[in-house]
């Protein structure tokens, strides 16, 4: 975490307009990440690569994550009038957090043997503001992986030299790795003992009027 904070300070000193945020990882791995604003992503990546103290010259992994809209409940203390006197009570307020798509980059340094440095960048939402600048001009290794993220998640990488679907066929619509993707209905029979598959199958049989 300290190391990451020092990298953050170093980048912010070099690029004053780029604001980075630390995202802590609550898990056991201790791999915390830096959240970059999409507008400054390319400059930050270039700086990370070319800074002689950092030299993160190897972009190992690029991947997308789909975060759905979710509802969070906050506990707030409010003053309420109750039987003539004012008391303070705790109430839960529901707050709708809009979803977004996230692109995660894992950088290593071949020159220094350090890493991973985890960069994250987020889109505005999941529908129409899904552009993120491409890193393919900084790291060639992002080229195919960004195409894959575009194909499976629907993140549009602006400035990518050849943004086409990578795995699904041309003319396919939809982005299958999104959490709300509905798979084609083509494995109807052979109920298996796995609870979820059996439940899915029974729903289908009910729909089709099969026994």
């Amino acid at each position: 975490m300290e190391r990451l904070a020092s990298i953050q300070a170093r980048i912010e000193a070099a690029l004053p307009e780029a604001k980075l945020a630390l995202a802590a990882n609550p898990g056991a791995s201790g791999q915390h990440s830096l959240v970059v604003e999409a507008a400054h992503l390319e400059a930050v990546a270039r700086r990370l690569r070319d800074d002689p103290e950092l030299q993160f010259d190897y972009l190992s992994n690029v991947t997308g994550v789909d975060w759905l809209d979710r509802v969070e409940t906050d506990k707030v203390r409010v003053k309420r009038e109750y039987q003539g006197e004012e008391i303070e009570v705790e109430e839960s307020v529901e707050r709708r957090v809009p979803g977004y798509l996230e692109v995660v980059y894992h950088l290593y340094s071949v020159a220094r043997g350090t890493g991973p440095l985890v960069l994250r960048v987020r889109t505005g939402n999941r529908t129409d503001r899904v552009d993120v600048p491409s890193l393919a001009n900084v790291f060639r290794g992002a080229e195919l992986q960004e195409r894959e993220v575009y194909d499976l998640f629907g993140v549009v990488f602006t400035g990518h030299p050849d943004l086409r679907r990578l795995l699904m066929w041309e003319g396919f619509s939809g982005h299958p790795m999104r959490k709300d993707y509905v798979e084609p209905d083509d494995y109807e029979y052979e109920p298996t003992p796995h609870g979820e598959v059996a439940a899915k199958a029974s729903r289908r049989y009910a729909k089709r009027g099969q026994p």
């Binding site: 939809g174 084609p184 109920p191 026994p211």
Partner: peptide, 23 residues
């Protein structure tokens, strides 16, 4: 052929028919 969502047709009726499942 490959359609917008799925392969079309899902099977050739001359070679294959979905089995009826008796449960």
């Amino acid at each position: 052929t490959l359609g917008a969502r799925d392969i079309e047709p899902p099977y050739h009726a001359a070679v294959w028919r979905p089995p009826r499942v008796a449960r």
